[in-house]
């Protein structure tokens, strides 16, 4: 067995790490939620079960598919990139062609390349899930599917769900998930059967 001083030092190190790591995550999260710029990302939720964190709505974002300008290639799978954020005419966030370095002005997201083809890039965004009460998550999911069937030809395929995301210095957190224009927190206050 190691000496008492060495053991105490190791224990102090362990305790410090055990507070520093989540403390840093909490501080960064709070700052992003309080000071970050709000963007609206259109979503398409599904409902898996995460064995570590309970039930959540897994989110897929239209903005994660980025059209590539002609001749702008050279991306590879797993590469870390920096995508500038723009807002389109409908007020939804869209991402510009990813860069190798963070842009000097404007908000951006740090993302990972999932796959790439000749004219499109698929990114893994730094937010992909919204945790819900485990009783309400399947109901929220069902409601989304019921009200969001595949559109008929020629109709606007707009989905009535989006996530409000706060972005600060490239770090992003989901503030709220909206379905049919209503925040999920409000939907969850209704009895499960009425959802």
């Amino acid at each position: 067995m190691i000496g008492i001083r060495a053991a105490a030092a190791l224990l102090a190190l362990a305790v410090a790490l055990q507070w520093a790591v989540p403390g840093h995550l909490i501080r960064r999260g709070q700052q992003t939620l309080e000071q970050g710029t709000a963007y609206r990302f259109r979503t398409a939720p599904v409902d898996p079960v995460d064995p570590f964190r309970g039930r959540y709505v897994a989110l897929d974002f239209e903005a994660a598919r980025v059209p590539l300008p002609r001749g702008q290639g050279g991306y590879r799978r797993g590469q870390r990139v920096y995508a500038p954020i723009r807002v389109d005419d409908d007020g939804d966030a869209v991402l510009g062609a990813p860069l190798r370095q963070p842009p000097e002005s404007g908000d951006w997201l740090e993302a990972t390349v999932l796959w790439v083809n000749a004219d499109e890039l698929r990114l893994r965004l730094p937010f992909d899930r919204y945790y819900l009460d485990e009783h309400h998550a399947p109901e929220v999911e069902r409601r989304y599917r019921d009200t969001n069937r595949m559109p008929a030809d020629g109709e606007d395929p707009r989905r009535p769900a989006w996530a409000q995301v706060r972005v600060r210095n490239g770090y992003a957190l989901i503030e709220m998930l909206y379905i049919d224009g209503r925040p999920v927190s409000e939907l969850m206050r209704e009895p499960a059967a009425s959802l």
Partner: peptide
């Protein structure tokens, strides 16, 4: 991670848990 809706980075999560457990196990 659940409170702030962090993305599911299982590898980072496991590595963090391991690195923090290491000095504790030795101490």
């Amino acid at each position: 991670g659940q409170i702030y809706h962090f993305p599911g980075d299982l590898d980072r999560y496991l590595l963090t848990c391991a690195l923090v457990a290491l000095p504790l196990a030795c101490a």
